[in-house]
Structures are given as structure tokens and as C-alpha cells.
């Protein structure tokens, strides 16, 4: 079993070191890769000091491009499983074994850590909460099943999904569109309960003002992906 913990980070100097240390405490010996999206602060130094390997992007690509760079490298290096943990400290690394276990046992292509299952912590800001409710309703008929936390970035992927995402991955706000990309190829995903915590430092990329743009952008991206419809198996 080759597992990589992927941590996309942009200006997360204050939090990323703690996240890496927590991951190493939970999973000793498992490699961590921080993908630095051209941070202006000391994110790279903090990550290296905490013992992570760092993939530094020469300029800012945004979350999707940043995560995809990590998936590409992980695929090229032959990893079987990649679990993405945000660099702001919102995801609790103690939930990683649960995601990994679901990936291995259920043989599904992607496992999402959901903050809304089984009484798990549901820390989220009101703008994001509204977006989650909206996209639950939009995605239900498209995916043919409910998804409780479509905006969660706490996701694990197996090598099949890794190969797909290293070729095609949504660039901005990728989590929701990625579900549609998976569904178009008849890949399976599963949700497991996870705890979300308040971010340790920095600011969220999704503010109240941005949430309308976010919803319109993602909605368009979802329908574009539905229309693409490549590779469906009969």
C-alpha cells in the first residue's frame, strides 16, 4: 500500500506546519507532500521544517491547478492512494485512517470526509452552508444519490481516480465538479463522517461576497461537465 498525504497550501505559513506534524503523529512514516501555490509568505519553509516534501508552483494557479499538480506527481511516482488534507488545519488528520480504510475495503474510486454525517462536527461559515444546501439539491438528480458534503476538500482517491484527475481536473472550486467528473465515468464515491475544525490561521477563499460568484461558476461547471459526457460505459 502506497499512501501519500497531499496538502495544497497558499499562504498557510501559520497553519501548515501544525497540520504536517499532526499527520505524522497519526500516520508515522507516511509521506506528506505540500503543494505550494506560489505563496508570498513562509509556507514552503514551514512545510519543509515540519518534515514534508514540497512541490512549489512557479506561479499561482488556484486550488484546482494546485491540487492537480499534486495528483500528477503522485500518479507519476506510483502512489496507490492519495488523501488530500487542507493546509489550514480545518481537517482533523485523525480521520485519515477512516478514509483510507473506506478506500481499501469498499473499492470505490473516491471517499469524501463529510462534516454532516453521524453527528460529526459541522463547523462552516453561513455562506458556505448556503452553498452546500444549494449544491446538495443540484447534485442529487445528476449523481442519482444524495451527497451530504459536496464542498468538502477532505477526500481520498485511489489510483484509478488519480489517473483520471491527473489528466482532467476542474480548476476553480474543484470539489463539486470533481464529483460530476467521477459520475460521468461511472466511478463510485463514498462519504464517511469526519470532523471539521475552525481554520488555524489565514482566511477562507470563499467569502460571503464571493459565494454568489462561486455558486454561479460551479453551477456552470457542473452543467458543462454533464454535457461533456465522455467515456460513458453502456
Amino acid at each position: 500500500m502506497k499512501l501519500l498525504i497531499l496538502i495544497p497550501a497558499y499562504n498557510e505559513e501559520g497553519a501548515v506546519g501544525g497540520v504536517i506534524e499532526e499527520v505524522h503523529a497519526v500516520l508515522p512514516g507516511v509521506p506528506t507532500l505540500v503543494v505550494d501555490d506560489c505563496s508570498a509568505d513562509g509556507t514552503v519553509g514551514a512545510a519543509r521544517q515540519a518534515g514534508a516534501q514540497v512541490l512549489s508552483l512557479p506561479y499561482h494557479l488556484g486550488l484546482g491547478g494546485c491540487v492537480q499538480a499534486g495528483y500528477r506527481l503522485a500518479f507519476e511516482l506510483g502512489y496507490e492512494y492519495v488523501i488530500r488534507v487542507d493546509g489550514d488545519g480545518q481537517h482533523d488528520p485523525r480521520d485519515i485512517p477512516r478514509i483510507l480504510s473506506a478506500l481499501e475495503q469498499e473499492k470505490c474510486e473516491m471517499v469524501i470526509g463529510s462534516r454532516f454525517m453521524d453527528g460529526a462536527g459541522s463547523h462552516t461559515n453561513p455562506a458556505r452552508g448556503a452553498a452546500i444546501l444549494f449544491f446538495r439539491a443540484v447534485l442529487r438528480p445528476i449523481l442519482g444519490r444524495p451527497v451530504s458534503d459536496p464542498t468538502s476538500g477532505f477526500v481520498g482517491t485511489n489510483r484509478t481516480a488519480l489517473e483520471l484527475f491527473s489528466r482532467t481536473f476542474p480548476l476553480e472550486y474543484p470539489e463539486i465538479e470533481a464529483l460530476v467528473v467521477l459520475q460521468r465515468r461511472r466511478f463510485r464515491f463514498l462519504e464517511v463522517p469526519c470532523h471539521m475544525r475552525p481554520r488555524k490561521a489565514g482566511r477562507s477563499t470563499i467569502t460571503a461576497v464571493k459565494s454568489f460568484y462561486y455558486m454561479a461558476h460551479v453551477l456552470l461547471g457542473v452543467f458543462v461537465n454533464v454535457l461533456k459526457f465522455e467515456g460513458r460505459r453502456k
Binding site: Q53, V54, L55, S56, L57, P58, Y59, L61, G65, Q68, A69, R72, L73, E76, L171
Partner: peptide
């Protein structure tokens, strides 16, 4: 450009 940036970063790594 995105593909190029990712490739450069991976090669550097």
C-alpha cells in the same frame, strides 16, 4: 500554461 507550470514544478521537484 497550467500544464506547463505543473510540469516545471514536477521536474524541479
Amino acid at each position: 500554461n497550467i500544464a506547463l507550470v505543473q510540469r516545471v514544478a514536477i521536474l524541479e521537484f
